[in-house]
Design a protein around this nucleic acid. Structure first.
Length: 303
DNA sequence: CCCGGATCCTGCTGGC
DNA sequence: TGCCAGCAGGATCCGG
């Protein structure tokens, strides 16, 4: 569910609410939420209890809190439906549906990890040195990444990203441009919503072969992606329903500004042509048939 | 090495 | 009304 703007909204909320707080208690429900932590629940709890959060960091859709134990961090991935919610002191809802982990903090508040579809997880992984000089994501710049993030590329809100080099890398991919945008090892943070919005802004169909894009087209789609991510972040992210809310329970407003995603049969904001929906990798793609003509035949990639 | 598809879950919606 | 197929914002793993 959450893509970069939503995760960054959560990261900023963590920075406001939990930095300097100490973890006094940890309650884990079920085994699935800790499945990615080597050593399982007991080891995770042992590493977390008594630690204080010192920084909130993000790269792409991954978010982590550095701990006062050097070289340690707690990593969150929200998957399709994960939420982090700060509960005020006295809040008592331990049986809330889909609550997976509750961290009790030293000021009486609680940090809840809630996740309906359970694709998200929490872990305390090793931090590994980075080849490219730090996480770059907003919030911090330590020269290490959690091991599960080591292969994740920088994202388009990262000032260090060289967009020209990225465009060149995009044009080397032998796949469709939408698939390349969703590849977190090429550029991170883009999911199904913002891929469709970036392609709409760039007037490109997602089935265009990435290696047949002209340089100006590759630049356009990356510029479009960076712009839509920034616009969505400014609006607090996209919230179709209560499944995505900010750390204090508030919704983002970017849904009103979506041009293509989820708008089947509604008019393209640019030309009025009804938006079409097409099947894509067990999901859907939305695009304007007029502004984003489907490629006539496959270009270099399939040919 | 690189790419595409299957897979892990729960819950809601719409068609029959 | 009830049931079930289809669909949902993602990453990983595995086979070709």
């Amino acid at each position: 569910m959450p893509e970069l703007p939503e995760v960054e909204t959560v990261r900023a909320g963590l920075a406001r609410h939990v930095l300097g707080r100490r973890v006094d208690g940890i309650a884990v429900r079920g085994t699935r939420v800790t499945r990615r932590h080597d050593g399982g629940e007991a080891d995770l709890v042992g590493r977390l209890r008594g630690r204080t959060f010192t920084a909130a960091v993000r790269r792409g859709k991954f978010c982590w809190l550095l701990l006062d134990e050097p070289g340690e961090a707690v990593l969150f991935h929200l998957g399709m439906s994960g939420q982090l919610l700060v509960r005020p002191e006295g809040h008592d809802e331990p049986t809330a549906p889909h609550l997976r982990v509750r961290l009790e903090l030293d000021d009486g508040t609680a940090l809840d990890f809630v996740d309906q579809r359970t694709f998200g997880y929490l872990a305390v992984p090793d931090l590994v040195p980075t080849a490219d000089g730090g996480p770059g994501g907003l919030g911090s710049d330590v020269p290490a990444l959690p091991a599960p993030v080591a292969h994740i590329a920088r994202d388009l809100l990262d000032p260090v990203v060289d967009r020209r080099a990225l465009a060149a890398a995009l044009r080397r991919r032998r796949t469709e441009v939408k698939r390349a945008l969703l590849d977190q090892t090429l550029v991170s943070g883009i999911g199904n919503i913002y891929a469709d919005e970036a392609l709409w802004r760039a007037r490109l169909h997602g089935a265009r072969p990435a290696d047949a894009l002209r340089p100006v087209e590759a630049a356009r789609v990356l510029d479009g992606a960076a712009a839509v991510l920034a616009d969505a972040l400014a609006a607090g992210g996209t919230s179709f329903d209560a499944l995505y809310v900010d750390i204090d329970g508030r919704s983002g407003w970017f849904e009103r500004e979506l041009a293509a995603y989820g708008r089947e049969d509604l008019p393209c904001p640019r030309c009025g042509t009804p938006i079409r929906r097409e099947a894509f990798a067990n999901r859907s793609s939305y695009s304007c048939p007029h502004c984003q003509p489907r490629p006539r035949r496959s270009g270099r990639t399939a040919g």
